[in-house]
Design a protein around this nucleic acid. Sequence first.
DNA 1: CGTCATATTGATGGGCATCAATATATGTGG
DNA 2: CCACATATATTGATGCCCATCAATATGACG
Lengths: 233, 233
Amino acid sequence: MPESDLQAALAEFPHFHSLPRELLARLATGCRFVRLGAGEVLFTQGEPVLGFYMVRSGAIQLHRSTPDGRDQILQTVVPGRTFAEAAVLSMKRMPASARALSDGTVVVEVCAANFLPLFREDSRLSAAMVVSLSMWLHSLVERIEELQIDSAPARLARYLLRLPSSEKDGRVTLELPMAKKDLAAQLAIAPETLSRLLRRWQDDGVLEARGRELAILDERVLTAIADREDAEA
Amino acid sequence: MPESDLQAALAEFPHFHSLPRELLARLATGCRFVRLGAGEVLFTQGEPVLGFYMVRSGAIQLHRSTPDGRDQILQTVVPGRTFAEAAVLSMKRMPASARALSDGTVVVEVCAANFLPLFREDSRLSAAMVVSLSMWLHSLVERIEELQIDSAPARLARYLLRLPSSEKDGRVTLELPMAKKDLAAQLAIAPETLSRLLRRWQDDGVLEARGRELAILDERVLTAIADREDAEA
DNA sequence: CGTCATATTGATGGGCATCAATATATGTGG
DNA sequence: CCACATATATTGATGCCCATCAATATGACG
């Protein structure tokens, strides 16, 4: 029964929606939905590669363990994006671990065993994969840019400005897509620093915060901070 | 006359050397060698994409300009590696700038206009591109790991340990592939800090340095520093 | 309502950038 | 080939940002 659902789900993804229905159907055969609760682990670094994934809802965090046991965040994958394609295409084992960031996270698993033959035989599929790999490259480059900014305020401001925002009765509002501790980890700053920055900006009237809901009051100040790289309110 | 040279040069690259000769010949038609002096610019961020490139000798540094005029280093591309494939495959304009790091840098330019039709028609080529994109993903992930290490000593130690080294009369020696200021930029630390670290490690008998030539005397200490992330000699 | 994770706020110290000055290296023209 | 000019490296002094430790507050959830 989930057969056709799966096919529809696959078609929702930007780089697959141009594929002919017949191909999608064959692709769907090796797929399944995976539902995860907050913090639940999808796969772990070093495991054999079973397939690649697409996020439908919630969010997946890719991370690696360092030799001293800490945990580095590679990227947070949001709905509409895929991950682990490179692992399927050119590695035996997962180079990173993946866990769900929120409850109700749903991903589509595309099984490698079914996918690889199709990939080799149909050039439209390889073109699609090239697109998704390119998207990944782009997002990693953005990540590198983020990390090279070594001032915490600039990193946070830049992050906030790039977040999808909506206009609600004249105010630009946005919602943090993850817990503040996770956001802090992603930005490579201490959670305490994140707290302090938000507080200072509130005191200065740059924004308002209630939980994960933020309202940007003065976008120009934020932009200036993001561009300065050294910054201060 | 460089026709056959070009074909040979293409074949030297890992993900192309399995391609049939006939295909390589057609590919070579749209290629040319580009020779660059130290600091010379190959292309600039925002320019139209002419093609992608492979480094034969020397080194190419990819960098982007930030809004405030500084310059962030994305990656240093060493011989045997390609770059700008993603730009050719899915963008109109170069997302970054490229310049030669040393005199006598030679790259092969693969012209997009000749390449793209071949790419679409021959699935072996798209498989090859998938491999090279995957290599890029891998190297960017390493770069992110590097940058997430926020202690300067750990970043430097890690970098040195990953550098190709040679054993000369019982001593492990290596050569920095670029000027120290460029290395400092790549590691996102101040040149002064780089100097001081090398001095301290020399004083502590961990290594010896003369210009860009380094001899590792105590690899275990370096490894410990690289793994600690906070570090101290 | 109690328990646990997450968030906030305060106090402290260290690492590294920054500024400044000298030394060395690199390269140029006379 | 040497002297000059410029880029790169080293070394020193200073200050600030942010991580860390510690303690309390708030929130989530059974």
